[in-house]
Design a protein around this nucleic acid. Structure first.
Lengths: 211, 211
DNA sequence: TAATTCGCTGACCGACCGGTCGGTCAGCGA
DNA sequence: TCGCTGACCGACCGGTCGGTCAGCGAATTA
């Protein structure tokens, strides 16, 4: 075993390759990463990467699938409890942001794969997942409306869009924003998530209630 | 002139190369695009691309600079008028979203370049621009607070974050979201921008005023 | 023990990469 | 007319790419 290489903690080559590929693909891009790099990072030969995954494209899709499974699992665990809808939305929001931040590489890949113009290799897989998660959130807000807890003259999908986007932005623009002197919520995800819920519920107009 | 190639409308080779490079870099990635592709797309030889820009890296940075200049110019034109702060924020929001949608390629490149983990070639240039634009928006909201038009127990930077992120999300997740049956604001940027302002000002809690 | 399978590897291939080079050609000031 | 310049090109360089393949050692099976 070589000390210079990272993963391969389990001795399982397949898992080592997947971890290495996810990291490299996220940090760079599909085209920028070579199969040799992935093999080196995983502590195996380039030929072995091909042995297990056939082609670079299949390896990439396996990486995306793996991220999707992990993400879905994490989000499923959030769906318990029967509080008021403000609590449920808040819990979803905190969970969503934490999921993103606890798996930056995966989030980065999915976000990149979801970009419009881009000709991604796993675009429809990523789209399917994000669509599902988005719909789930929309339904939650819709139920809040029907329960009379949220005002009715608004579009639930738009609220969902703002919630999800706020978290994605926090994750991927953090290093840019962190050093601005106008910002003090950087490196404090919980404070950010709480603030988002407060603003979204109470609005920013003067005279609104507080969170 | 070849019909298969796109730009070169002006006959200016440099401009043709920049346009071709922006398109290809946005649709794919820095590594995925070859100098030969760029030359072909621009209707010039690969050697000529090197003649004008030296290296692939310099060409890429020129593309980013060009996008930044266009973006800054567009945003500067929004800073006129002295209405109430709701109108000013609304105008900024519509303008910001329109800027993004009218230059998808540029927005795509800047967004990609601003990603956290990513090791981009024009990262700090993109970060500088986004930081400036962000600070400008924060100041606008801050002034609204001091004028008493916006409630004071909230973080202006967080509001700015939510505004910007909502637009970025709309732009880059549109194709994913468009076909969901829960969504009806797709392909209607003005409706979306108006809804964002409404939600942000009035909140979603039952009992809030309408927009 | 002999045969077979399995995970894995180094050597190798054609294609393409970023970048360079020698050279052509139109235009321009003297 | 001359010398010079910059835009432009085809051909080429060393190097790396994705992908293939015969074969190795260690298990597994008969």
């Amino acid at each position: 075993m070589n000390q210079a290489i990272s993963s391969q903690s389990t001795g399982n080559a397949v898992e080592s390759i997947l971890e290495a590929a996810e990291k490299l693909f996220a940090e760079q891009s599909f085209a920028a990463v070579s199969m040799r790099q992935i093999g080196d990072q995983a502590g195996v030969s380039k030929a072995n990467v091909f042995h297990h995954f056939g082609t670079k494209d299949k390896l990439y899709k396996s990486v995306i699938q793996r991220i999707i499974q992990a993400s879905t699992k994490l989000l499923d665990e959030l769906d318990s409890g029967e509080d008021d809808y403000r609590s449920r939305l808040s819990r979803f929001n905190h969970g969503h942001l934490n999921n993103i931040l606890s798996n930056c590489q995966g989030a980065c890949l999915l976000l990149q794969e979801s970009m419009a113009i881009r000709s991604g290799h796993g675009q429809q897989m990523a789209a399917e997942l994000l669509g599902k998660q988005f719909n789930r959130l929309v339904n939650l807000i819709d139920m809040g409306q029907q329960a009379g807890e949220l005002r009715k003259n608004m579009d639930p999908a738009m609220v969902a869009s703002m919630l999800v986007s706020a978290n994605l932005f926090f994750f991927n623009a953090l290093p840019i924003i962190a050093h601005l002197d106008t910002v003090d919520f950087a490196n404090n995800p919980d404070k950010y998530a709480k603030g988002v819920i407060d603003l979204l519920f109470n609005g920013i107009a003067a005279g609104g209630q507080e969170g």
